[in-house]
Amino acid sequence: MAEEVPDRAPARSRTVRQKRSGQRQEAMREAAARLLIEHGPAAVTHRRVAAEAGVPAGSAAYYFPSIEELYAEAVRTAEGMRTTAAQAFAEDLTTRRRSSTTTARLLIEALYAPRLEPDVVTVRLEPMLDASRTPGLLEIMRGSWPGLVEVLRTVLRKCGYDAVADTDDVLLVRLLIDAALLHAEVQGSADAVEHAVRTVARLLDLASAAGPGTDPA
């Protein structure tokens, strides 16, 4: 009597389903992160994320049962995207002496990679501060800090501000960027980014042993 050969089709079918499920989860994570970065927390809903990810709306809650879980993954993935984009931005800069104003703008652009928009306070900064006050999200936000601080050090060095980059003043730069953006928003400034640029530039002039920098002619 011939030995029966086990039917391997069910196993292959399970593998295919698991792979598709993993792909859909990853697509939803990335879609949620993009929506968070581009439009803010209100955009992170099961329906909108599913549409952005190309996942059937009815199955979105299967992958992320609660909006809290979906939002946590959006924050985690967005911070990863932010750090990766910031590192690439800093590494792509050429090394040359730049003015404090130019350097300040580059620092802000790096910190708010992958893109810096005029509505950065309401769409990016305020949601990040809220996340930093939320149990479960705080550790995610803390996890991105060391990498972002190193990005700022790289930008400072490439712009000729080694005297700032090589001290704890770089931490002050990190804090001042957010504080200056918030202050501009509270004051009703027409351009919060430019307000922050001027504030951070002043700090660089004060903190740098070399004094104010100038762009080469």
Rank of each mutant, 00 (worst) to 15 (best):
L70W: 04
Y71I: 10
Y71C: 02
E73T: 13
V75H: 09
R76V: 06
R76D: 00
T77D: 02
T77N: 02
T77G: 05
T77Q: 10
E79L: 04
G80P: 12
R82V: 05
T83S: 12
A85K: 15
A85M: 11
Q87K: 15
F89E: 06
F89A: 07
A90R: 14
E91Y: 07
L93A: 10
L93E: 13
T94Q: 08
T95L: 08
R97W: 00
R97Q: 07
S100W: 08
S100A: 10
T101A: 05
T101L: 00
T102G: 00
A104N: 04
L107E: 06
I108D: 02
E109G: 10
A110L: 05
L111S: 15
L111P: 07
Y112G: 02
Y112V: 03
P114A: 00
P114D: 00
P114Q: 00
L116V: 14
P118L: 05
P118M: 07
D119E: 14
D119Y: 11
E126R: 11
P127S: 00
P127D: 01
D130R: 14
D130H: 12
S132H: 11
G136W: 08
M141E: 08
M141T: 13
S144T: 14
P146T: 15
P146S: 15
P146F: 15
G147M: 02
L148N: 09
V149Q: 09
V151E: 12
L152A: 07
R153W: 10
R157S: 02
R157G: 01
K158R: 06
K158P: 01
G160S: 13
Y161V: 00
Y161C: 00
A163V: 10
A163Q: 09
A163P: 14
A163M: 06
V164K: 12
A165M: 10
T167Q: 08
D169T: 14
V170I: 15
L172A: 06
L172W: 00
R174D: 06
R174K: 11
L176R: 14
I177G: 11
I177L: 09
L182M: 06
L182I: 15
A184Y: 04
V186A: 05
V186E: 03
V186Y: 09
A190V: 11
A192Q: 03
A192H: 01
V193W: 02
V193E: 03
H195P: 02
H195W: 11
A196Q: 01
A196F: 05
V197I: 15
R198M: 01
R202W: 07
L204K: 06
L206G: 07
L206A: 10
A207P: 09
S208N: 13
S208C: 12
S208Y: 15
G211C: 03
G213W: 09
G213I: 12
G213P: 07
G213Q: 09
T214I: 09
